[in-house]
Amino acid sequence: MSILLEIKNVWKQYGDAVVLEQLSKCVSAGEFVTIVGASGCGKTTFLNMLLGTESYSKGKILLDGKPLPSEPSQDRGVVFQRYSAFPHLTVLRNTMLGAELSASPFLGIVFNRRKFSAIREKAEKMLESVGLSHALNSYPHELSGGMQQRLSIAQALMKQPRMLLLDEPFGALDPGTRSDMHKLILALWKETGITIFMVTHDIEEGFYLGTRLWVFDKVRFDPHNAEAYGAQITYDIDVDQSAKRRLKKELELELEKSEQAFGASE
């Protein structure tokens, strides 16, 4: 498989406080990377660095061999925990937006009827595959949390990005909805072959969804200065069934400890 993303010795510092250190990884196209770690360990900061909304202090991130643009771009789709859909557009128009923006650089609205219906058709197909065909003309506020996330995923996939970044996308959903969403995202991932990075605080979810699980944690501690060292990727697990069983228990214990350590340093 070809290498999609290269992370070369990346550091993130705020002044003297080190948040992330010595991150070096390669990710191939088509992988599903789940990222877990204690709260405050910098996993969302890391995702934002991939997204381009957060800069890094040292190192390099290469996407397809080229430096990653330092602002959000069409290469990278994103789904946040909340607020990803546009409240003033219907479900259909929300989904069409990406295609409309690239078809019409002047106003971002497509007036040409043929082009419009082509985009519309594509959006309807995409909405069908996320299970929102029945809600084309609803506004986002009329949708449940799970449906809003479906919409947000559909919006992002319309652009066929190189990678999809998910920031605790199912964190606010109830358990039943969440497991439906798990099935959906796995189905879409298999169908499109897209590379996914997903931050979660739920290890179980990380193991279930990912082909690769990264654990962010601090390796080095300075008892006099909690901020002297940052978190690293302490585990990079190729997830298969045996690994799941063997490691899950261990990791849960470790994370609990780390959670306490971060709690103590705050």
């Binding site: 997204l51 069409q74 789709g77 946040f80 546009f86 923006l101």
Partner: peptide, 11 residues
């Protein structure tokens, strides 16, 4: 989130 999302959609 909305402004970032719009940029990833090509705006």
């Amino acid at each position: 989130e909305q402004l970032i999302k719009a940029q990833t959609l090509g705006a």
